[in-house]
Write a protein that binds this DNA or RNA. Structure first.
Lengths: 337, 337
DNA sequence: GATATTGCAACAATCGATTGCATAGATGTT
DNA sequence: AACATCTATGCAATCGATTGTTGCAATATC
């Protein structure tokens, strides 16, 4: 009864306080223009009625959204679910970094059937900027949008002539690191597991090839185009192990997810790891340290990557013209090699 | 030059089309009140200038947000990162279900230091409803908010006297299923891995106890309060294996993440699974099928859970008073037991 | 040919907050 | 006492869209 009606906007509160809406607005914003006494009184009143100004109205007036759109374009691999550990790990780091800056994260899973998918988000007026986790096969569209919409950054490859700002690791170098490590371990026959339609994967494969070339073993590589989902990877690898007489002794997997499936397939075929076959993954996702045996892998520092993405994005929002970042991958040796 | 100025709002477009803003609004909404010819003309014009009405302004007027807040309260376990596979899997399913209904997902990681954390989101006017992934140790606050704010559902336990609407699986039953299975496998000495501060875990432990009681083995259970993060779980288990003389032959893990760490620790101690020790996990996360050996676990159908959460939420938004859902967990037998 | 009906589009209020400018009252100065 | 100077607030326009009401033509009806 003391409440009479729920205080639902700044005008209600103003009436209650016997001041004008403008004063309330200023008071809640702790503006020096309002006398300290009035300010405190209004703030107390707001707390008492637990009133909080409507964020949407504020954003409309202020012309900012207070949210960053995070999109996961799943172009080439419809099977690849949003819950893919890689995306999720990245997403987690992004959520942390954005929360820290007081921004919300507007998540959209996107299956880019319609070429307008990116424009729709960008022009919605709901976000102050956009982060793409992966470029998928949508490079053209991304570049086209990036030309007119600057607060946009993407995780992924940094290709020559690319318009949009990206953060990623040097995939070619990663491929080289992985392969060299296997060479040092005495491997003589290699397999690359992964589908090089995605630009990142193609670069990793290229690095792998380059390292073998250097070592004079260019002809010792076979490629198994395993998709990025665990299940398909496993069955592909498994049937491949059945068929192949000469199992390679060095496996470079395009991702940790694929590597994990490989470990399982190998275990099921009673192939000793690292006794008979050495396996290197890619990403160093949290679970890479929990597999049996623990997974040697190429570390992409996703936490650092997320920081870069967010940092670059905010600099772009502020008007700066930033250029892409290529991080250096790192070999993490564990038990699988 | 044909564009002169970028068309940034409905008024610009109206001027260009030689009609009033209201007409443009109706035309873009495909309202029958506008003549077909005019409608098409305006729509074409909008497409040409790729103009899309500002969603925030629309939402303000229309009094809906078009977004659902998804919160992950990390009360008890500060170490538990948002990228925990369980959260992420759930989040993925939620993103799918919400996208399908045309809603966006506003993600916030929440460390509830401040008791106002939930109110802040609820009253922000930015979301039409809230989904909590887990209750953490915040039951009181959740219940308190749920009393006045109905469009709120939570994944987690359904405790007697609980005010808020929740979706979860019957954890006690899950604990029973896991334990009975181990009993059938001939286990005689049991260990439960997990920290029962979280209500779900406590229920699972209770089920485990009940099953042992039934079998007359109530005294054969030891409890290792492993936290939910992989790393701490592993080291806890590992040092425990070092110390304990009599290793149990049946392990009930409170989650798949913990189980995976256990598998690794056991492998490192050269304990055969399932030869010497049988292990059962909980959740049936995607990776449970990729471990070595693959993990027997208690399946919580997260896809179905997410569907329920979303479905209930929208019914609540529509004004219905829904009650909680308890799903039945299911034993999935794989190679670890 | 005068009136009733209908179809289209314009007008203007509204959602809830922010903010530049105007002003009333208090204080200070001579 | 008259005037200048501040301070603290009120006023009203604004952000960009939606929508009930109104007005005007063109057509239909007698």
């Amino acid at each position: 009864m003391s409440e009479q009606q729920r205080v639902k906007n700044i005008t209600d509160l103003a009436r209650l306080a016997g001041v004008s809406p403008g004063t309330v607005s200023r008071a809640l914003a702790d503006s020096q223009l309002i006398a300290e006494k009035t300010r405190k009184r209004i703030q107390a009143l707001a707390r008492e009625h637990d009133f909080r100004p409507n964020v949407m109205a504020r954003n409309l007036r202020i012309k900012r959204a207070g949210a960053i759109g995070v999109l996961i374009p799943l172009g080439h691999e419809t099977g690849q679910h949003i819950s893919d550990p890689f995306f999720m790990t990245m997403l987690g780091h992004l959520a942390d970094a954005l929360t820290e800056r007081g921004y919300d994260l507007l998540l959209s899973r996107v299956i880019p059937t319609d070429p307008d998918w990116l424009n729709r988000v960008v022009d919605s007026g709901r976000v102050d900027g956009v982060i793409l986790i992966g470029q998928s096969d949508q490079l053209q569209i991304i570049d086209q949008v990036a030309q007119r919409y600057t607060p946009l950054v993407a995780w992924g490859a940094n290709l020559p002539g690319q318009v949009h700002c990206s953060v990623g690791s040097d995939n070619r170098k990663g491929g080289i690191l992985a392969t060299r490590h296997l060479i040092e371990r005495g491997c003589t026959n290699f397999a690359f597991l992964g589908d090089p339609v995605a630009p990142e994967i193609a670069e990793r494969l290229e690095g792998c090839r380059a390292a073998l070339m250097d070592a004079g073993m260019a002809d010792r590589l076979s490629i198994l185009q395993a998709h990025l989902t665990a299940e398909t990877a496993h069955s592909a690898i498994s049937s491949w192990l059945d068929e192949t007489k000469s199992v390679p002794n060095g496996i470079v997997a395009a991702s940790d997810v694929i590597a994990m499936s490989a470990l399982r397939a190998l275990a099921e075929h009673n192939v000793a790891v690292p006794g008979t076959v050495h396996v290197v993954g890619y990403d160093d996702l949290p679970f890479a340290n929990q597999t049996v045996p623990t997974l040697t892998t190429i570390r992409q520092d996703l936490a650092a990557g997320a920081s870069y993405l967010v940092d670059l994005l905010f600099r772009r929002i502020a008007g700066e013209r930033t250029s892409s970042v290529v991080m250096s991958p790192e070999l993490v040796v564990r038990m699988s090699s």
